[in-house]
């Protein structure tokens, strides 16, 4: 159930947007399609919605084969990056659109629309036009409009991509709370790993038209399947032939077994954290080890440039051995 995508391939001319992608999205969850721009995630979302036709493969929504269905008959709510507000209609009429064309009784429409406007905190803006709303308000209106027809799945294409950082963060938290209230199967596309890690129940990492890994945010962060996923989900650094997160490095001021000797080359304070760059015997200037510390720890260690340190990956760190993972093309 939920959404099942089987062996979807989609080409635009010579460009392969999706290459034999299969995927299962569980009912009632908030799933993120995460990946770099041009990786195929938006195309996949549009294929699920019926706005794009796959060259081959099938799409099943809640047990119904939707591959041949037009978007009108998929019962899918779609939210666009640039809101796609009906400019000539008031907020009320925008939200009512799906119900009006279904010829529902006026009273029923009114009740439902006001209920939804309340849900998205726009009840006092019912008579305004989209042009009189801020970006965040327009996107909330678009969400209410999509929810109005009680879709079996909600698809959001970079829903916060056009908003500034502050509003983005607010809407992200709000979307999470909304989903906890409404429980409709939701898939959203993002290229922002923080957004995906923070909001979703499950993340699908898509790159170059293929699924790299699927899992919960912590599973992906802690057990990345490959170098691409590890690099895409957060900062990484090299230590002794391994790929490690900068906050997963233990520092010792005295030599210990299985550590790498290093010299501090730079210390930078950024708010509550301290970033240390160090050079080990086997690294070159351009390829220093980055270490991320809390301020408290940095103060206790009393680090200084030129100081000798001994480094090793924490015992519970997610580390990838670069010598036995096949090299991935990461741009």
């Amino acid at each position: 159930m939920g959404i099942d995508v089987h062996h979807i391939t989609k080409r635009f001319g010579d460009f392969v947007a999706l290459d034999d992608v299969s995927l299962s999205i569980p009912t009632g969850q908030l799933t993120a399609l995460l990946g770099p721009s041009g990786g195929g995630k938006s195309t996949l979302l549009r294929i699920i919605a019926g706005l794009e036709e796959p060259d081959s493969g099938t799409v099943t929504i809640e047990g119904v084969d939707a591959t041949a269905l037009p978007p009108q008959r998929r019962n899918v709510g779609f939210v666009f990056q640039h809101y796609a507000a009906f400019k000539h209609l008031s907020v009320y009429r925008n939200v009512a659109f799906g119900l009006e064309i279904r010829k529902r009784p006026k009273d029923e429409i009114r009740t439902r629309v006001m209920e939804l406007l309340e849900l998205v905190h726009l009840e006092q803006f019912a008579d305004r036009y989209p042009a009189q709303l801020s970006g965040g308000q327009r996107q909330r209106m678009a969400l209410a409009r999509a929810l109005a027809v009680e879709p079996s799945v909600m698809l959001l294409d970079e829903p916060f991509g056009a908003l500034d950082a502050q509003v983005r963060r607010e809407l992200r938290d709000w979307l999470r709370r909304l989903h906890d209230e409404v429980h409709v199967t939701t898939v959203f596309v993002t290229h922002d790993q923080e957004e995906a890690l923070e909001v979703s129940d499950e993340i699908v990492v898509i790159n170059q038209g293929a699924v790299e890994q699927t899992g919960t945010p912590s599973a992906l962060y802690d057990q990345p399947a490959n170098e691409f996923v590890m690099r895409f989900l957060g900062p990484v650094t090299h230590l002794g032939g391994h790929l490690v997160r900068p906050h997963d490095i233990d520092i010792s001021l005295t030599p210990e077994p299985a550590t790498h000797a290093a010299t501090v080359s730079r210390i930078q304070r950024v708010g509550f954290e301290v970033r240390v760059e160090a050079r080990t015997a086997d690294t070159t200037d351009a390829d220093e080890v980055s270490i991320q510390l809390t301020r408290g720890l940095a103060d206790r260690l009393d680090l200084a440039v030129g100081q000798q340190l001994w480094l090793r990956a924490s015992h519970d760190a997610s580390a990838l051995d670069l010598t036995d993972t096949p090299a991935l093309a990461v741009s």
Binding site: R73, F80, A84, F97, R102, A142, R145, A146, V149
Partner: peptide
């Protein structure tokens, strides 16, 4: 805005 037409279509129009 072509998105408007796609949005309307996905709403059942």
């Amino acid at each position: 805005d072509h998105d408007m037409e796609e949005a309307a279509a996905s709403l059942g129009a």
